[in-house]
Nucleic acid binder design. Structure first.
Lengths: 124, 124
DNA sequence: ATTCTTGTATTAAGACCTTAATACAATAAT
DNA sequence: ATTATTGTATTAAGGTCTTAATACAAGAAT
């Protein structure tokens, strides 16, 4: 199934986010070999160059590493992964709270609204 | 003060979000006259064309309307504004919950994490 | 009537994003 | 040794985004 992208942001940036998510959530566990660029590109329905660009960025920050010809692997540095996960969680929460605050929601209202929507989608 | 933009998304898209926020939160109340395009552009530190593009989109959805030469105004349709606000709230919550879920957070953990971060930034 | 202010349109340039089509180097697999 | 697989690099094309510099039309202000 092709990955889904918003049209308002560069695909390569969205690829980075998605792959980070997959690493943090254990879809791609530490030390695991990733599928080849070409396969990943096809899976995401994206040009290999675009996928390559995203992977290169993730390599820059140490999340992936490459054995020139045998493939690309997720780092075994579980500490780094945990740091990333914490960073993402913090960012998501802060961004969310800021958006809600700007819409005039106080702390209690935010929690209430979340609980309500959680209830609504409980049956999934 | 120039508005702030992320580098990973088109400016015009971010302008749309910001202006929507300002309308929903009452910074630009219903029926109010907006500053001229040129002023808004300067305030945001953006090219007038870019600001114009964002405003045109907001007009497309009925959130703004124009009197050709006297200026641009926020709609007086408070119902439309309320609908937008509800839509934004829902989107923000759903997006947030989805991201957290993908990081392995259950409902309780999400609420706990939010409460914790709320506490941390209580003194602002 | 004249000038100012407003939104709008146009053209050009440069930067970035995406795709496509190749090609190459180095190791793995046979 | 030969072939296949892997990441990587290059070039070209077309699209979008952003800025810049103008110009115009029409109502507002004087």
């Amino acid at each position: 199934m092709p990955w889904e992208f918003r049209s308002d942001c560069p695909i390569y940036a969205q690829l980075i986010e998605k792959i980070e998510q997959k690493i943090c959530s254990g879809v791609y566990p530490p030390g695991t070999k990733l599928p080849p660029v070409r396969d990943l590109a096809q899976e995401a329905a994206v040009n290999p160059n675009t996928m390559q660009r995203a992977l290169a960025r993730l390599e820059d920050v140490g999340l992936l590493y490459t054995h020139r010809t045998s493939g690309r692997f997720v780092t075994e540095d579980t500490d780094l992964i945990r740091q990333l996960k914490n960073r993402l969680v913090q960012e998501h929460i802060r961004d969310f709270l800021e958006k809600m605050r700007q819409l005039g929601f106080g702390r209690e209202e935010i929690l209430a609204a979340i609980s309500r929507i959680m209830e609504e989608s409980k049956d999934e």
